[in-house]
Nucleic acid binder design. Sequence first.
DNA 1: TACTCGTGATAGTATTACTATCATTATGAA
DNA 2: TTCATAATGATAGTAATACTATCACGAGTA
Lengths: 227, 227
Amino acid sequence: MSAISIVIEKKYYNKDPQSSDLGKNIVSTSIELMNQLGFELFTFKKLASAIDSTEASIYRYFDNKHKLLVYITTWYWAWVEYMIDVSTHHIKASDEKLKEMIKIICHASEHISDIDMPGMQLSLLRKVVVSEADKTYLTKQVDEINNLGLFKGFKGLCHKVALVVNDINPAYPYPHALVSTILEASHQQAFFAQHLPSLTEISMKKKESLERQVYTFIEEFVFKLIR
Amino acid sequence: MSAISIVIEKKYYNKDPQSSDLGKNIVSTSIELMNQLGFELFTFKKLASAIDSTEASIYRYFDNKHKLLVYITTWYWAWVEYMIDVSTHHIKASDEKLKEMIKIICHASEHISDIDMPGMQLSLLRKVVVSEADKTYLTKQVDEINNLGLFKGFKGLCHKVALVVNDINPAYPYPHALVSTILEASHQQAFFAQHLPSLTEISMKKKESLERQVYTFIEEFVFKLIR
DNA sequence: TACTCGTGATAGTATTACTATCATTATGAA
DNA sequence: TTCATAATGATAGTAATACTATCACGAGTA
């Protein structure tokens, strides 16, 4: 049981939400509200009333709700990368390393529940990311946001995993494409299992947890491809 | 060169847009506008002024812009399924059949340009689907919409391809999960190549077309997995 | 003491996502 | 031809959204 903190760069916000109680409240309550309402129906006004503050105060931290979503997902990817670092740094064999990485990406690692993250409800956060993260880039402003460097978190994680893929099989020509595909698929398959079950064999009705099933699917997938 | 028409069920609209000039105009102009503005900035008011009509008239065809997007993507999947039918019905070998299906899904088939689709600009439509289709289900109303049967088109296509996967290797345990993954990946990889190129080896700078590169990536992918 | 910093309170604006009503025009059946 | 009906246009209105702006207040700091 350890308490760490994930540091997010200045470019993601106007005022650091980790620097004040109000800021922390904005982030944690926005995760709850996005979970309840979905990103579209989530508004700063509703958030303000939920934390007994005002719209104006929230705008001092984030320009708009889209930037807040980018912040939240960046935090999530930074956390995934941190988890990967602590649980793989001691593993020498590349394929074991990759397996553990995939486990963490699929939320199927035993280590995940070990970490206490003050002010962040990880299970809620994961739900929000599964349902909403794609909206960070599925927007007409994608190039603008990308130019500001705001997708660094996702790209960095993708690259880190791709390096290990490359280690295992330097001849495989699509390491990044493969990793970005499984990063997306790990969310989509969980989402489909819950909402559009005919799109996947992964099912809530099976004994194994969703996360474990997704892991099995993706792990097989990756290793059949690169070996 | 043939002219066919794709028929969409009543549940997708209030008034059949294929039944009038105004309706056709609504659909084809909405595709142009969504392409220019993106789904978020696209509004019925802008659409009305673009076709010299009124908001009220558009609402007579579609309840809201989300339903219009569902209609458009459903039309797209129905078209993909039609293309698959005509270009694979004569193929007996399952693996050849699957290859052709993947080609069409990736928009890399030679047959695609053969078909003349009156009132539908297929290349624009494809762009809209790549950027916006996920938003049909990434919404809090996903279960509601699913209960109305509005995801039948996507599910049907997924199942059709999954059956062929199952034919090739009945022991492979995840045919639907695999197919839904490649359906998504075929869009995502094209999107990444254009907007977030560090996430994929598929690149606009290579000689081969994006579509062809995506096809190569995904075809290898599928056959290594199921054989 | 004065100053500024973070926050709250309040107000205002353009736009969105509808809903409602009524007028006009085109179509086609009697 | 006439009458009825359906399709569209014109206009208005509403609640909510996504902001922007201004001022006031209290706490801590120099």
